[in-house]
């Protein structure tokens, strides 16, 4: 089936990201807050993460727009025990990664960018 194939391909993209030890988990969420695909630990409530990531990106985008700051490439939430990074993945989706606090941000962002392009090619 079309959808199943798509899901498998998205899972492959997520699995590839997880090969980097700096990335603890990744998810693809719809911009309106619904989960599309996730490789986050089962201890994390992925439905909640999907909703919250969409809200963070939605409010940040609106803030940036109101401030005439133009487009922004990513959102990084820096916390004591790690970072949450969200970047757009096509017109309808976001790629969200959970990154170790000591993670190499440059490398992670580069890989996320590549993954985002792959996702965008599949989801449009």
């Amino acid at each position: 089936m079309g959808l199943e194939e798509k899901q498998n391909e998205l899972e492959t993209v997520l699995a590839h990201l997880q090969e980097f030890s700096d990335i603890q988990g990744a998810a693809i969420v719809r911009k309106d807050g619904l989960m599309i695909s996730s490789s986050l630990s089962p201890k994390i409530d992925s439905r909640t993460i999907a909703a919250m990531s969409a809200a963070i990106v939605g409010t940040a985008e609106t803030s940036a727009g109101e401030l005439h700051l133009g487009k922004f490439p990513q959102i990084i939430v820096e916390s004591e025990k790690g970072k949450l990074i969200a970047i757009p993945a096509g017109s309808q989706a976001l790629l969200v990664c959970l990154v170790r606090p000591t993670g190499n941000l440059g490398l992670v962002l580069l890989e996320m960018g590549r993954a985002s392009e792959k996702i965008s090619a599949k989801l449009g």
Binding site: R30, K31, D32, G33, A55, T62
Partner: peptide
């Protein structure tokens, strides 16, 4: 934020 949340 209402239209953002209300999508779909």
């Amino acid at each position: 934020i209402l239209p953002i949340l209300a999508r779909d």
